[in-house]
Design a protein around this nucleic acid. Structure first.
Lengths: 188, 188, 188, 188
DNA sequence: CATGAATGAGTCTTCATTCAT
DNA sequence: TATGAATGAAGACTCATTCAT
């Protein structure tokens, strides 16, 4: 593992466990086994570290959503698959996901804006799926697609708060349940 | 408004806007128009302030849930009312709710435990409502009630991230939509 | 001596001896016998300390120049007195003057501008004296007054580099010599 | 341009613009288009760079002064030429001169001493010229030659603070004015 | 000759909290 | 009740220099 990888890895664990503001740069470099100077050689700031972790989750989930949404099954199935997939991948990369879900607003102004627009794209792709089903008449249309998407992502983000990999529910269990609830709630 | 009230009020606004760790005690007392000494006269620590804000939301919502759940209408209606009510009251006290939703893990160990058990009670009362419906056969039983409740509270907590009182959706709109989605998803 | 006074005094000595950039805040507070927190209670930054020292010299010298220039003797005598006075007061407050003469450009942008305009006023008052003599025909006019003033202030600022209070020359000696040279150079 | 030349050149510009302590080695090598390793291959330290720049100005000016002083015209003319020459060459090599004039005390102990004695030699050669005129009765003797020389060099050093090559005054203009003032002030 | 990763000591600044008054 | 001066520990970040390659 290279030094920057070790740093990212250490930062991910710590940010996930204590939150960005509660982690000192010193702790990160100690855990990575390097000195502060080394960290600032690779990353411009503590914020950069967060940004990097952020980006990797967002990129991965965006790619997967795109692929699933572009499939050719019925929209109900595609939405179910997408809803389930975001849960499974979040749990499979739980520390990264925790950081992503909880530290959104800790980024400095400039990076926050860049991130925001990437995020919006994800949100919109998901919403398009819901709207497609509404247009096709298979989803209820009395609740705005936008509200539904916020509703579902709330549930997803909250995973970081209650889910434990050591419990009885596997990632797939939760994915299936959540997707069932979402799709179920959209029945006309 | 008394001094402690002014302090709570100032702290609520600031914590809601920037997050607990990003607010200095000095900012709070400045906004409240008092000095630091005064704050430490009334509150033992910065944490205490958070605890106070926390408590007030949780207490209020617990009381209301209790009353609604204990009503005598059909369980579907009671769940819908409870689901909608938590949204409306959260939006009506949006700053307090934001603090409550986002700063859970910032409390010191001892206070966190106290808080946790209050929280669990609320969660369990809500879950009981779902289970009641499942037992009565009006709610689907293939998704554990526990998962459903986490799912819904995720959506609720996420309000703090996306909802704006200045937008087109009123508190009641969102309450109705969210409750519709929840109840809809529980149909067998 | 109050704490802020002790801080200013310690900072003056240290800045004079080593230059602004070579002095650590820690050294200043150690010498003043307080902690860093105390310093930041009274001064917003290390720059503020510099600004304070700066200001006091500049204010004093401006006031004295104003008074001397406004006198009613012949212009030759007033210029001689002003030229001599700036030397004597600089030597009497040698540490402060050293800081003033050598650390001009170390101030942060905003404070530098404020300072600059005060400084210009001083320069212009002095120049007006030279121009008055030129208009009266008692000073040569082939060298622009502006150049002469820069020339003389260069000599003054340089005091910090070579003069020592322990040498054979008293402040008055240097003042007289410098003023003699200036007035002598302006003879037609 | 060789690598060491590029480094010297970059360092000169940066030191002149921001002062020795405000320039990072990284900036210098970036501007020179090389890496830090390369710099430390050619120069022992950041101080060395300063020393090099220093030396070149001082050496050049010493040589020229020597030549001018050893001429065979009247002492008044030789002093005027020397006084004017130091201005013109300082302005022609303005960045180097700025560094030389302003960063005197930033050198490490050992190098500072070496520099000091070279400097003294220059000062003494100049003073000898003044004393020669005093002995010949063409310069006033009531102001010590030593003081006069400090006085004049102050004016020279101060150029770095106010002179701009883009203004209306050419190097020769300033040289003539300054020399006129010096020679004028020495009239008996 | 030259790279660039890594060091380690040092920089300024922030802040929750205490305490004499 | 309330002040505000003072503390002390911790915070993020910088930078000249070294060294294996």
């Amino acid at each position: 593992m290279t030094v920057p990888e070790r740093l990212i890895s250490a930062a991910t664990e710590l940010f996930a466990a204590k939150g960005f503001d509660r982690v000192a740069v010193q702790e990160i470099v100690d855990r990575a086994g390097v000195t502060k100077g080394a960290m600032y050689h690779y990353f411009g700031s503590k914020d950069d570290l967060l940004h990097e972790i952020y980006g990797s989750v967002l990129r991965m989930q965006t790619e997967r959503l795109e692929k699933i949404a572009a499939g050719d099954g019925p929209v109900v199935e595609r939405l179910h698959a997408a809803a389930s997939d975001v849960i499974v991948t979040s749990i499979d990369n739980f520390d990264q996901a925790k950081v992503y879900f909880r530290s959104a607003d800790h980024l400095a102004e400039d990076k926050r804006l860049a991130m925001r627009s990437e995020r919006r794209r994800y949100h919109e792709r998901f919403r398009a799926l819901v709207e497609e089903g509404q247009a096709a008449g298979v989803f209820r249309a009395d609740v705005p697609a936008d509200v539904t998407v916020h509703y579902y992502f709330g549930a997803v983000h909250h995973l970081a708060t209650w889910y434990s990999p050591d419990g009885v529910l596997s990632a797939e269990d939760v994915g299936r349940h959540y997707a069932d609830l979402l799709v179920g709630s959209l029945r006309p």
